[in-house]
Design a protein around this nucleic acid. Structure first.
Length: 438
RNA sequence: GGAGAGGUGACAGAGUGGUUGAAUGUGCCGGUCUCGAAAACCGGUUGGCCCGCAAGGGUCACGGGAGUUCGAAUCUCCCCCUCUCCGCCA
C-alpha cells in the first residue's frame, strides 16, 4: 500500500509509476473520492464533538443529581431533559454523514489496494522482461561433446521423475519425484536451509494455508488473487500460499517491534502452490512451471531507510548466489525493468540459471525489495531510537526452489552414458551418493 | 463437533452504564544520588486519522462488526481467536 498523504502531495510521481508498471489505476478518481470522504469526515467530527461535549455535561449532572438534596432533584432532572434533546438531533445528522462516508470508503480502498509502489529511481525503464538488464554472469556454460538429454528424459529413464502418473492423479503440471529424484530434491533444500542458518537467519516452519489478511498484506491480493488456490469450504476462507514469504513477512503483522531488534532475518522451507492461471501452453513440459513445489525463502524486515534496504537487498541476493556457486551452476543476475516489476516491488533482481534444454537462462530466483509497501498493508511497524513509530521495510528472495532447480542440476551434470553425477555439495545429504545411474 | 471460561496499552493485570484512553505493577525514556553501576526516589511513556506553520485542538480505537442509550471497556446480537473438559483423529 502506498501512503495516501504522499499521493496527495505528489500525484504525478504515482501517475508515472503506474504507467511504468503498466498498472491501470484511476488516480484522479481516487484523489477525488478521498477528498470528498475527508470533507465529510471533518463535518462529522465536528458534530460528534458537540454531541460528546453535551454528553459529558449530562454525565456531570448525573453525578450531582445523586448527591443533591431532594428539594433540588426535580429542577436538575428538568435541566437534564433539556440537554438531552440536542444530542438526539445531532445523532441523526451524524448518522447520515457516517453512511455517506461509509459508502465512499470501499471505493477508495478498492483503488488504493491496486496502487503500485513506485519503482526506485535506479530501476531501468522498460516495457517487459525483454528489457531487463543483465548485471553479471557467473560460471561457464557447459559445452557437451555428446547429445545431451533434457531433464524429463533423464529423470524418466533414471527413475527419478514420473510426470505421467503425476498428471493422472492430479492433472496437468503435476508430477512425482521418485527414488534418487526425491533424494536430490531434499538434498538441495537442506543445503539451502543449512547455509541460511549458518548466515544467522532464523529458521521457521510456517503455515501455508492463510487468511485473506496475510495475502492482502503481502501484496498478493487483490491483484493476482486468481493465482491462488482458495479453500472456500472454510469460513472465513483460507488460501494456499505461493511462497513462504507470505507467512514470514506477515509474521509480525499488526505489531510494533523494538527498533533495536531489527533487522529480523527469517528463512523457511515450505510447499508453494500456484494456479498458473493464464499460462496455458507456456512451459508445459517438465518441471519448469508446475502447480506445487518446495522452496526455501528468505525474508528481511528492517528499518525504514532506503540505503539500508538496498544493502540488505544485496545481501539476500548474495545468499542465493552462494547456493548456486556451491552447486557450481552457471547463472546470471538480471536487474528487472519497471514494466516487469510486481505491484509492490520497488526494485527486483532475478537470478537466472543456465538450463541446457531451454538453450538459455531460466529464472530460478527473484529478489525483491518493497520499501514500506508490504509493511504498510500489514501494519508492521517499529519504535525507533527517537521514540517514534515507523513503518518497516521488507525484502525477500528465493534461496532455492525445487524441483525447478533440478532442471539445471540434472541436465548440466549428466554424462554420456545417461547417468548423472551428484554435485559434491549435495553428496553429504544423499548418503554419500556420487552418481545416479540405472 | 459439544459444554464452559475468557480476549483490556510493549507485557502482566484492575475496571460491569457517566466527568476512564483507561488504576496498579513491570518494562522503556529522562532526572536525582554515585567515581561508575545497581538499588532507591522524582518525572515521562498507547496508536490511527483529521484540522493547524506551530502551539494545540478534534475524532476513532479496550478481539472484529452491528445494535440499545443523551452517554458503552462495561448491556444485546453476530463473527473471529485463546484456554479447560468431552468426542474424533495424523
Amino acid at each position: 500500500m502506498i501512503d495516501l498523504k504522499d499521493l496527495r502531495e505528489n500525484p504525478e510521481a504515482y501517475r508515472q509509476a503506474a504507467m511504468q508498471k503498466r498498472i491501470d489505476v484511476n488516480i484522479d478518481r481516487l484523489l477525488e473520492l478521498e477528498s470528498k470522504h475527508r470533507a465529510i469526515e471533518i463535518e462529522r467530527q465536528q458534530i460528534t464533538a458537540e454531541k460528546n461535549q453535551i454528553g459529558k455535561q449530562i454525565g456531570q449532572m448525573a453525578g450531582k443529581l445523586k448527591k443533591a438534596p431532594p428539594t433540588e432533584q426535580a429542577a436538575l432532572q428538568e435541566e437534564m431533559k433539556k440537554l438531552q434533546a440536542r444530542p438526539t438531533e445531532l445523532k441523526a445528522a451524524e448518522q447520515k454523514l457516517e453512511a455517506e462516508a461509509g459508502a465512499l470508503w470501499p471505493q477508495i480502498e478498492a483503488i488504493l489496494l491496486r496502487m503500485p509502489q513506485p519503482a526506485d529511481p535506479e530501476v531501468p525503464v522498460g516495457k517487459d522482461d525483454s528489457e531487463n538488464v543483465e548485471l553479471r554472469k557467473w560460471g561457464t556454460v557447459r559445452q557437451f561433446d555428446f547429445q545431451p538429454k533434457d531433464h524429463i528424459a533423464l529423470g524418466t529413464e533414471l527413475g527419478m521423475l514420473d510426470v505421467d502418473r503425476g498428471v493422472k492423479l492430479a492433472g496437468s503440471r503435476s508430477w512425482f519425484l521418485t527414488g534418487a529424484g526425491a533424494m536430490l530434491h531434499q538434498a538441495v533444500l537442506r543445503l539451502a536451509m543449512d547455509l541460511m542458518i549458518e548466515r544467522s537467519f532464523v529458521p521457521m516452519v510456517v503455515p501455508v494455508l492463510v487468511r485473506e489478511g496475510a495475502m492482502r498484506g503481502t501484496g498478493y491480493f487483490p491483484l493476482g488473487r486468481e493465482q491462488s488456490y482458495e479453500m472456500s469450504n472454510e469460513e472465513p476462507p483460507v488460501f494456499l500460499v505461493g511462497t513462504a514469504e507470505v507467512a514470514l513477512t506477515a509474521y509480525h503483522m499488526d505489531e510494533i517491534l523494538d527498533g533495536k531488534s531489527l533487522p529480523r532475518k527469517y528463512v523457511a522451507m515450505s510447499p508453494c502452490f500456484r494456479r498458473e492461471a493464464g499460462t496455458y501452453g507456456k512451459d508445459t513440459a517438465g518441471l519448469y512451471r508446475i502447480h506445487q513445489f518446495d522452496k526455501v525463502e528468505q525474508v528481511i524486515i528492517c528499518r525504514n531507510d532506503v540505503e539500508e534496504s538496498k544493502r540488505w537487498h544485496q545481501e539476500i541476493l548474495g545468499n542465493a548466489e552462494a547456493v548456486l556457486q556451491k552447486l557450481n551452476l552457471p547463472y546470471r543476475v538480471v536487474q528487472v525493468c519497471t514494466g516487469d516489476l510486481g505491484q509492490g516491488q520497488a526494485a527486483k533482481y532475478d537470478i537466472e540459471t543456465w538450463m541446457p534444454s531451454r538453450g538459455g537462462y531460466g529464472e530460478t530466483h527473484s529478489a525483491s525489495r518493497f520499501y514500506a509497501f508490504q509493511a504498510r498493508r500489514l501494519n508492521l511497524r517499529y519504535r525507533d531510537a527517537d521514540g517514534k513509530t515507523k513503518i518497516c521495510h521488507t525484502l525477500n528472495n528465493t534461496v532455492i526452489a525445487s524441483p525447478r532447480i533440478l532442471i539445471p542440476i540434472m541436465e548440466l551434470c549428466q554424462n554420456a552414458d545417461g547417468s548423472i553425477t551428484v554435485p559434491e555439495a549435495l553428496r553429504g545429504y544423499m548418503g554419500g551418493m556420487e552418481r545416479i545411474g540405472k
